[in-house]
Simulated assay, not measured.
Amino acid sequence: MGFLHNNIGYYLREVKTLVRRDISSNLLSVISLAFIFFILALVFSLGISSDFIISQIEDQAEISIYYTEDANMDDLIENLLSIPGVTDVIPVDEETAKEEMTQILGSESRIVDLFDHNPFSPYLDVTIQLESVEEISERASSLGGVELVRDNKEVLQKLQEISGIIRIFGFFILLSVSIATLVITSHLIRQGVYLNRDSIGTLKLLGAPDGFIYRPFLVNGMLTSLLAGLLSLIMTFFSTRYLYSQLSGSLPFIVLPGFSEHMSTLVIFTLSLSVILGIFGGLMGIKSTKPKNN
């Protein structure tokens, strides 16, 4: 980026001239790239959220143990705590279980009120080390007084599978976005070079080096991609905020990353990618035109 420090005023004036000469192509390029970056940002956002949810489940790994009516609570808790990988055991009574389910159901919690009695059973909330979940579940099931052991292993495995699919899908989206950005930007630069071929020829006759002649086109490609990235972030901001509000209302048990931190990551990713792709697209466009102008 060191070339921007020299003759920056000249380069910006030239970029302004380039845009005025073909404003429709520049505008369509910005809009097209903005929607492309928007799709990429949404996929990237989904990947970040899925990884965060999985990490939260891993950090707060728990199993629920339901016991029989004749179980000795003190002995059962003591035996559970003696199992390697078990870090804590908290008894949960019927009312607390009902309150937890009410919070999970959110607006649908009125279903619980339809019952004449409390349909939930007391259980033991056991905090564990996730890597030991299978061994802990097996040993807990063999204890006297244990009726049922419920863990979130299958849920976590499904989430991990979904996260893997998102990563693969995101890679192909990133590849597609990169190719599309390079093609659109390079085409824009080629067209700009063609429209300004007389001015370029004059500068060459005057002995101007290629770097001085073509840098305004490179700056134009970078700024076009950067502006598209900014527009995509505006769309991403409102879309993400809407999704956050919907999920927090209908699925309150899903823990999402903080909105500000989430958007900061998206801003850094989108703007960095847009600048890099804009520069490379500009270089490709310039390189493809040089043989025609020599």
Rank of each mutant, 00 (worst) to 15 (best):
284 M>F: 15
140 A>G: 05
105 L>M: 14
99 E>K: 11
65 I>K: 00
150 R>K: 13
249 G>T: 12
125 D>T: 03
87 T>L: 13
267 V>G: 02
16 K>C: 04
89 V>N: 01
67 Y>M: 03
199 S>G: 00
160 Q>E: 15
121 S>Q: 15
292 K>H: 12
72 N>A: 06
41 A>N: 08
277 L>C: 06
91 P>Y: 05
83 I>V: 14
160 Q>L: 07
205 L>T: 10
40 L>E: 04
46 L>G: 13
111 I>S: 02
102 T>E: 15
287 K>M: 10
52 F>R: 07
259 F>E: 12
28 L>W: 12
233 L>Y: 01
100 E>K: 13
124 L>A: 04
122 P>L: 03
289 T>W: 03
223 L>I: 12
27 L>V: 14
95 E>G: 01
273 L>K: 04
183 V>C: 06
114 L>S: 09
147 E>P: 00
236 T>C: 14
3 F>A: 09
200 I>D: 03
40 L>G: 07
179 I>V: 15
257 P>N: 10
113 D>G: 11
266 L>P: 01
54 I>Q: 06
60 Q>Y: 07
49 S>C: 13
144 G>F: 09
288 S>H: 10
253 F>E: 06
42 L>D: 04
76 L>Y: 07
117 H>M: 06
30 V>L: 11
217 F>A: 03
239 S>G: 02
210 D>P: 07
145 G>Y: 05
11 Y>C: 03
